[in-house]
Write a protein that binds this DNA or RNA. Structure first.
Lengths: 290, 290
DNA sequence: TTAATCGATAACAAAGTCTGATCAAATGAA
DNA sequence: TTCATTTGATCAGACTTTGTTATCGATTAA
């Protein structure tokens, strides 16, 4: 009985969350046989079956479910106690962060720097993705925190605002010299998921400009390069093009839209891991205003 | 960080309770170097000092004290969750039980049998001692539960009644044939700590008998042998002499005293170990009535 | 000073744990 | 069906952790 360690319980929790041994193994940075062994050890120690084979998956038995339920808050409390004792400087582990592309450019550099300074033992795994998929991954436990643009209200997700940045209508230097919107530029945007796309449409709806066409690219960096090369005009977050504006590669071609783009950090509403909660707390302290 | 197991916490808790590594080692059925190693591991993992050398002892630092305080309920929670999952049949460990001699004879056999049947993994270490010393050991953590005679009300101790047994005035067969109290028998009792002694004095105070002398022996079994051999009369718990009365070795020489002897089980009021609490619960279910 | 107690340390033994390479069963697609 | 994929089990071996015994130096009390 005494031979059950904390990581055995942590293993149970992650299997319960992710559904398969393999996913838990990946999540815990180990191998599937190790997970199998841990589960076997717990079952042997307790003399009960915690999982039952169901097709090619393992599912929790009633007792297993109860055990997991009881252990979850205890595990969180334990982690918190240890981290509190070491003042969080001793925090270790891997936290997976999803981020939208725009949020990544605007929020991540400062954030990562802060975390690496204050919590040197924590490894971050950052993956850029679309907002919808990120929320799904967040709920499914594949990522622990997400940075994203635009207000998100999803059940089971807890968010905090990080600030807002201005948007600017820009076009390439050459294009502007050639007359800008006087000559029916093509407008570029990113696919309809993004709040940027909404702003693009709003401006167009005002009838100020008549685009030659509306093209999209799902990668903002590439889009910026297209614009820089004279491909047309686009609404972009000011921080992402600030240096290009300063160097003259890009120039503003319309008044700045009133709407700004909001950034948020998101975690599961049920998140209990103190490291993730601490990272979320720190994210909430970011102020990404332009 | 993840390399800290439940027994590390248990180790901290017992060091905090008992004051020294050695005592904790003994209590946890291991050696002092093992305890030192566990402490070192925790301190290394957390990167903080939990103990500070003070003379030849180690005392908790402020952080250490806080950690212990936070971990105590967590540890109890883990133990309880695990034991609940295995239905307590999987309980393991050692529980130290102190018992008064009379309580031992009256309560322990049935109790031990029940525990060995239902919680086969639990080892009992039973030590017979005086009530006062037992309470001290209980509070000091050297024992976990005590069975004792007579009502006890001590701060920090939680008790439950187990029932009462009758007392009988007995003397040896030969003595009774020779006339019993008609001939001024010596009276034997146990030292003044015991409730038996009180009953002895009460009877004498009623003036019914006039003893030739009042001697004492701090061991009831020996006292019974003395009485059996014709050494005099004594007040004894009925169950302890039942078979000797039946066989005729002893005989009752006075009406039974009205006062009975109460038995109680006692644990620390702050006890959190689920195994001990379970054993206490079972003790409370005993009914030792004659 | 002597004896006893406290915890640290080293050397060795024992037990536990992880990994990488399979294996068998179940599932889903062609 | 057949084939490819996914899931977990198993095993051998290397490696790590953990415990024990015996000893040490430091501190305290007699």
């Amino acid at each position: 009985m005494k031979r059950i360690a904390i990581y055995h319980l942590e293993t149970l929790l992650w299997i319960a969350r992710l559904g398969t041994f393999r996913a838990a193994a990946e999540r815990l940075n180990t191998t599937q046989p190790a997970i199998s062994a841990r589960v076997r050890e717990i079952e042997e120690q307790l003399g009960i079956a915690i999982f039952r084979r169901e097709g090619r998956n393992m599912v929790l038995t009633a007792r297993g479910r109860r055990l997991v339920k009881e252990c979850e808050p205890l595990w969180a409390g334990f982690e918190k106690a240890l981290l509190t004792a070491s003042g969080f400087e001793g925090a270790t582990g891997t936290v997976r962060i999803g981020s939208g592309e725009i949020a990544a450019a605007s929020c991540l550099p400062a954030y990562v720097q802060e975390v690496e300074r204050d919590l040197p033992g924590v490894t971050l795994e950052i993956e850029l993705d679309l907002t919808a998929r990120m929320l799904q991954q967040l709920l499914g436990g594949m990522i622990d925190m997400a940075f994203l643009a635009g207000p998100v209200a999803s059940p089971g997700i807890r968010t905090v605002g990080l600030g807002a940045v201005s948007l600017v209508w820009v076009a390439g230097q050459e294009t502007v010299r050639a007359g800008g919107f006087a000559q029916n530029l093509p407008v570029w945007s990113i696919p309809s998921h993004s709040p940027l796309h909404g702003v693009t449409l709003e401006t167009l709806a005002q009838g100020v400009i008549t685009p030659r066409s509306i093209s999209t690219c799902n990668n903002v960096r590439t889009l910026i390069e297209i614009i820089s090369g004279g491909g047309g005009a686009a609404v972009l977050p000011e921080p992402m093009v600030r240096s290009l504006l300063a160097s003259g590669t890009l120039a503003e071609v319309l008044p700045r839209p009133v709407r700004k783009i909001q950034f948020e950090a998101a975690i599961r509403g049920t998140e209990s891991d103190p490291v993730v909660l601490e990272l979320f707390r720190r994210a909430a302290g970011l102020r990404i205003d332009s």
